[in-house]
Simulated assay, not measured.
Amino acid sequence: MNKSQRQKTALITGASSGIGYQLAYIFARNRYNLVLVDKKEEKLNEMADEFPQKFDIFVKIFAKDLSIPTSPEEIFRDLQKASIKVDVLVNNAGFGTYGVFAETDLTTELNMLQVNIVSLTHLTKLFLKDMVEQGYGKILNVASVAAFQPGPLMAVYFATKAYVLSFSEAIANELEGTGITVTALCPGPTATEFQQAAAMKDSKISSVSRMMDTETVAKIGYRSLMANKTVVVPGLRNKILAESVRFTPRSLVTKVVKSMHEIKKN
């Protein structure tokens, strides 16, 4: 434990799959100790067995559901008791739901707000105070290109990502000169379990060819975090999409996004 504590530590939520797993792998390869948070305990245990042997690091896991409001505080207190300082916070956990807002499930959407917004904010508040005290820290918040426009048929999800982007940019500005940086990673459609989990695998956007893979997105996110960038949109096509909405009437943007999310016709 003494040896591993001399290395920097990264806490990653939603670490068991997708972008979160790839980020965990990259941090481990770069000799960061890891604190991994996810609901999937079996996968976390596998990572806790594999990564220390492969990369000579320390791994601590938390099988926590971030839709439960007490989870962030429990994680923070347990790490305090173990005298583990977090140097890098990666708020990656998040999910979406699909459908007309008047018909979608309220409980699912409230859980989504808790995970995508409230727990992200709560964890940032808790760990940022320690970062300020030590004069160093990095925060990576995983948003989405969805943050740049409204999203009919995924109204709540798009709104949560708009919050993440706005929040990240604001606190990045507040923290200038403190030794702490904040980066918002805004990927476009990525080949993950997201589409299936959101019950939108038959939508037009889910059939987009040349989706970016999670490893590529994670590498771009990691490099951008280390380069102290505030906002990063991986992929030229996604960058064009994010910029184009600034010059397009909002009513037209909303119609186009809705069309992209409608179910494919046979």
Score class of each variant (00 low, 15 high):
T183R: 03
M112R: 12
V142A: 07
L120E: 02
C186L: 07
M112N: 04
A184V: 11
V142W: 02
T183M: 13
I180K: 10
Q149S: 11
Q134Y: 01
L185R: 06
T108L: 10
G135T: 13
K161N: 06
L153M: 10
T181D: 06
N111C: 09
G177A: 11
I180M: 12
L120P: 02
G151F: 09
K138Q: 15
F167C: 04
F158N: 10
A162W: 10
S166D: 07
S168V: 08
K129T: 09
V115R: 00
E109I: 12
L126A: 03
N111S: 13
T181V: 08
V115F: 05
V164W: 06
T181W: 01
Y163C: 01
N141A: 09
N116L: 06
V115D: 06
E174T: 02
L128A: 04
V118C: 07
V118R: 10
T183A: 07
L153A: 06
N141M: 12
V132N: 06
N116A: 02
A147K: 11
I117N: 05
S166Q: 08
L185T: 05
E133Y: 10
L113K: 05
V182I: 10
A170L: 02
N173R: 10
L128Y: 09
T181Y: 07
V132E: 15
L126H: 03
F148K: 08
L128C: 08
L165T: 04
Q114Y: 02
T181R: 14
V132S: 13
A172Q: 11
V164T: 00
A170K: 03
V182N: 07
V142T: 11
S119D: 03
G137K: 02
L175C: 05
E109Q: 15
T183C: 15
K125P: 00
V164S: 02
G137V: 05
V142Q: 12
E176C: 02
K138A: 03
L123Y: 01
V156R: 11
L140H: 12
A172S: 11
V118N: 11
A162S: 15
K125R: 15
N173E: 15
Y157T: 01
S144C: 10
Q149I: 00
Y163H: 13
L128W: 04
T121G: 13
T124Y: 00
H122V: 00
L140E: 02
T178V: 10
K125L: 12
H122I: 00
I180A: 11
S119G: 10
M154F: 05
L165M: 11
M112G: 11
Y157P: 13
V164G: 09
Y157L: 13
G151Y: 06
A170N: 05
T160K: 14
L128G: 06
L175A: 05
L128T: 13
